[in-house]
Amino acid sequence: MEKLINDFSFGLFFWQIIIFVLLLLLLRKFAWKPILNAVNDREEGIKNALDSAEKAKLEMQNLQADNEKLLQEARAEREVMLKEAREIKAKMIADAKEEAKAEADKTVAQAQAAIESEKKSAIAELKQQVASLSLEIAEKVVKHELSDKDKQLKLVDEMLGDAKLN
């Protein structure tokens, strides 16, 4: 201990304090502050870059999710549209069928009516022809049988009555 105290040099102590404090002040101003600031800035920069990368990734994910959603929506819409189209097709076919049937029915009805009227006119014509024929026949018969007038009239009546029944 005595040797330690004996070895203690006040001059060295004095210079050490002066040099160290000066060194501290100089280095603080010209070295440590710029170095630490540069390092901090760099770390901040790296942190920001990482953050923004993370953000971009999230955005990408969001975009992808949106795309997926849109695609799904589109798909669903297509599905709906297809279904509608199918329904419309079925309905149109059904309508067409119905219409065609109605038309056909109508045509048939018209044809029947035409046939009926043709028949009627034909019958009427037939009747006329029959009447005329009958008249001719009757004329001939009359010419042949006009000897007996009464007989002739009776015959005509009978004949007419038969024709009506026909």
């Binding site: 060194l23 280095l27 010209f30 070295a31 440590w32 710029p34 170095i35 540069a38």
Partner: peptide, 10 residues
């Protein structure tokens, strides 16, 4: 030290 670390800062 002054030379080394100021040049580093620069």
């Amino acid at each position: 030290l002054v030379w080394l670390f100021t040049s580093l800062a620069k």
